[in-house]
Design a protein around this nucleic acid. Structure first.
Lengths: 336, 336
DNA sequence: CTGTTAGCGCGTTCAA
DNA sequence: TTGAACGCGCTAACAG
């Protein structure tokens, strides 16, 4: 059987509560008795039982993470594993445990959150399903349970969230192209209703404006799904109707399609950038210039935000922006 | 405050223990009181508190997973995220919670296992660091704490483990090449001391033997590290000294190097296979025939093995083999 | 078949 | 500054 606080007390010739006190540095204790207790702890190899401690009212120091099961996303991206690692880096530093569960749909997602809360195991939740998790948010808010979301929620005011500065990121992308002498830059993005798309498009517009450039007609595209095929479609269209010298996209997948069309048409003088730094971007030719969204850091900051809120209940809810970095590769080299 | 068993008891006009009993289907209870209790549970929206239940002696129904932090592996492979998902699929079905932690080295790995055990949170551990985790195994055995390892341990007899049938997998690869008329098949693998390498090499030898083929001199290579460069080195060597018509490797990375050399030398008539079905294998040209190791299933079976052992203490330790599947792509097509 | 009671290991009053 | 006692929510004997 494991050694309990009781045996430590006996060994140190003090009462249970005294041991408990030195364990938590609470109230004043003589240096001498403190030493006696600590010696006993060491001698007996005592380690506190979190279960008992939690039952007696202490927080569990455990965070639950909810992941989507969608295999496509999982395969395409190292986002999730990196975000999970990021979370772990901060959480472990603070002595927190991490739980995770994959859910196959929204409904199951809520179910797991319910389970996390009701079981009493976790004291906070990280939402990692990048998109629409309104049901989860609703449930968590209803039960006023602490949580943080990676991604920008619809009502960002009253919620803890962490996301990239998508506007700035795309702005940087476009400005770097302008610096290379590009003057007619096309845009390919996801659905216009999505916050990510909106933000990135905003950055695109701002960069052009600041550079004194205009958006050409028919040079902006918005698609419902992030596919290579849509990238191709847009690029073919651009080649026939426009005189572009660069293309920015909100996702590497679009860019892969774009590059295919450019290769076919021997127009690799047109520069291309992507977003998300998917592994494939380094394997194709030309290698793709893209934006690293730093999933690690997103996770780390999310964990920090949550834990700070956990330990300081009346902290204001806030949103945190994580900078991303432009990774320059062959698709934006002048020599090509 | 959450509703407790006590309130349910009062509502149903029974004692605590009766409620506890219907909760666990233990001993005989009148259908009528059972109904009364269940009604009360529903009416009050009662949910058992796992913490209390655990403290009172019930198992925690929580499994701890230990992951390596090594970014290279993490990026190259979807193995970990898939294995984690596989574990979750089975564990969640059985009502188990999952904890994870990333450790940056062996030492930290043991530290986390220690923490898992001492805290009392978890009742079993899954080791996922594919290679040498002797220290962890040692620690776990010392404390006779239930665990399962994904991969083949050095002393497989007294340990629960799950792994691919590497011998058979490689055998299938080679036989499929023989069936395509190949007669001089080279082998490129990792360090000869590694169990994986040994097993795959064994399958290679068996297949050749059964097909009445001989291993040519200087056509087998073993490298310390899985790199493209080593693949190139081996292939250049093979081209100059041997008359091979196919190359099998124990890792896609070797194969990428091999294909590079073959393309350079316009020798794509030589067939190539890899191992692990890394994402890149579908993006290169020719696309690479490789072996899918089914990380999902490895995780699922590992969870099953562990949970079965958890719920049935005197179960024998065992090793489970997970079949892999050969994915035929362009690099083994005759037309090329 | 059901109720009573004594813990599980620890935190936290309240006294001393 | 320290100790005794109670309770967190639940399980598992032991009675009846």
């Amino acid at each position: 059987m494991r050694v309990t606080i009781k045996e430590v007390a006996k060994e140190a010739n003090v009462s249970l509560s005294t041991v408990s006190r030195v364990l938590h540095n609470s109230s004043k204790i003589t240096d001498e008795t403190k030493k006696r207790v600590n010696d006993a702890i060491k001698k007996l190899g005592y380690h506190p039982n979190y279960i008992a401690s939690s039952l007696a009212g202490k927080p569990t120091k455990t965070i639950g993470i909810v992941l989507p099961n969608d295999s496509d996303e999982l395969f395409k991206n190292t986002f999730f594993i990196n975000a999970m690692r990021g979370i772990s880096i901060y959480a472990q530093k603070r002595g927190y445990f991490l739980m995770y569960s994959f859910s196959k749909d929204d409904e199951e997602e809520v179910k797991f959150i319910e389970k996390y809360i009701r079981s009493g195991w976790v004291s906070g939740v990280v939402l990692l399903n990048s998109f629409e998790n309104d049901k989860c948010i609703e449930y968590l808010e209803e039960h006023s349970f602490p949580f943080v979301i990676i991604g920008t929620p619809n009502r960002p005011k009253s919620i803890n969230w962490v996301d990239n500065d998508n506007r700035q990121a795309m702005k940087d992308v476009v400005l770097s192209l302008v610096k290379k002498g590009k003057k007619s830059i096309a845009f390919i993005g996801g659905h216009k209703k999505m916050k990510v798309t909106k933000d990135r498009y905003l950055g695109y517009q701002e960069a052009l404006e600041e550079s004194g450039l205009k958006i050409k007609k028919n040079s902006n595209f918005f698609f419902d799904s992030f596919t290579e095929e849509n990238g191709k479609k847009a690029m073919r269209n651009l080649l026939s109707t426009n005189d572009v010298d660069a293309v920015v996209t909100t996702d590497d997948l679009f860019s892969f399609g774009v590059l295919d069309v450019l290769k076919e048409n021997k127009r690799l003088d047109i520069m291309v950038t992507g977003f998300n730094n998917t592994p494939r971007s380094t394997f194709i030719s030309p290698t793709l210039t893209t934006v690293e969204i730093n999933a690690d850091e997103l996770g780390e900051k999310a964990a920090r935000l949550l834990i700070e809120n956990l330990e300081n209940k009346d902290l204001e809810k806030q949103g945190l922006l994580v900078s991303s970095s432009l990774i320059e590769r062959e698709s934006t080299k002048n020599e090509l």
